[in-house]
Amino acid sequence: MDQRISFVTLGVANLAASRRFYVDGLGWVPELEVEGEVLMFRAGPLLVLSLWDRAHFEAEVGPLADTTGLLPITLAHNVATPSEVDTVLDGARAAGATSVSDAVERDWGGYTGYFADPDGFRWEVAFNPGPIGQSVLPPVSDTT
């Protein structure tokens, strides 16, 4: 098996609310949309983020666990500078995200903060100056 992830699929309670947040609020462009069922976004060259209505999600993968509190997963959006972290967090809040934590300098040398989408999924916005953090950034385009 190749070492890669092709899709990240999240079961969401209200697909219309998720659409308003990701499309209308954050400005993401769907690559596939089946109204009331699923919304898919190209999240990288070989990665798709899929937001699936919970009822349709459960019909295929089985019952969701009864949980209280935070699910043990985060999604991360890495950026090239600490100021971009603040800009993205501000944009997410303007789109209706719940602020989880303002950005702070981390012990490991990065600068990160968190927001929650309409279903409470936590998004980390991060500047990671280390090699692995830099390796996930899109290439810088030369506009000169």
Rank of each mutant, 00 (worst) to 15 (best):
M1E: 15
M1G: 13
Q3V: 10
R4D: 07
R4P: 02
R4E: 05
S6L: 12
S6A: 08
T9W: 03
T9K: 12
L10G: 14
L10W: 09
G11C: 08
V12Y: 01
V12S: 01
V12D: 11
A13R: 15
A16S: 12
A16Y: 06
R20N: 01
R20L: 02
F21W: 09
F21A: 07
Y22A: 04
Y22D: 01
V23K: 00
D24T: 02
G25E: 00
G25C: 10
L26M: 13
E31C: 08
L32C: 02
V34F: 10
G36F: 04
E37Q: 11
E37C: 05
E37I: 07
M40L: 13
F41I: 01
R42C: 01
R42Y: 06
A43Y: 03
G44V: 04
G44N: 11
L47K: 07
L47T: 06
L47W: 04
V48D: 10
L49G: 05
S50D: 11
S50R: 13
W52H: 14
W52K: 07
D53G: 05
D53Q: 03
R54L: 14
R54I: 14
A55G: 04
H56F: 09
F57L: 13
A59R: 15
G62F: 10
G62N: 12
G62C: 13
G62S: 12
P63W: 11
D66R: 15
T68K: 09
T68R: 11
G69A: 09
L70G: 05
L70F: 07
I73S: 02
T74L: 12
T74S: 15
L75K: 15
A76G: 04
H77S: 09
H77Y: 09
N78H: 09
A80S: 09
A80C: 05
T81C: 12
S83A: 15
S83V: 08
S83I: 05
S83P: 06
E84I: 04
D86C: 06
D86A: 11
T87I: 13
V88M: 08
L89V: 15
L89P: 02
G91Q: 11
A92M: 14
R93Q: 11
A94T: 06
G96D: 11
S99G: 12
S99C: 02
V100R: 14
S101Q: 13
A103D: 03
A103C: 10
V104Q: 15
E105R: 13
E105W: 01
G110P: 00
G110H: 06
Y111A: 03
T112Y: 07
T112H: 10
D117T: 04
D119C: 00
D119L: 04
G120W: 12
F121T: 14
W123C: 01
E124S: 11
E124V: 02
A126P: 12
A126S: 13
F127P: 13
N128E: 08
N128G: 06
N128L: 06
P131K: 09
P131S: 12
I132R: 13
G133S: 05
G133D: 05
G133K: 14
Q134W: 04
S135C: 08
P138S: 02
P139M: 14
V140K: 12
V140M: 07
V140Q: 14
S141G: 07
D142I: 02
D142V: 01
T143L: 12
T143A: 08
T144I: 00
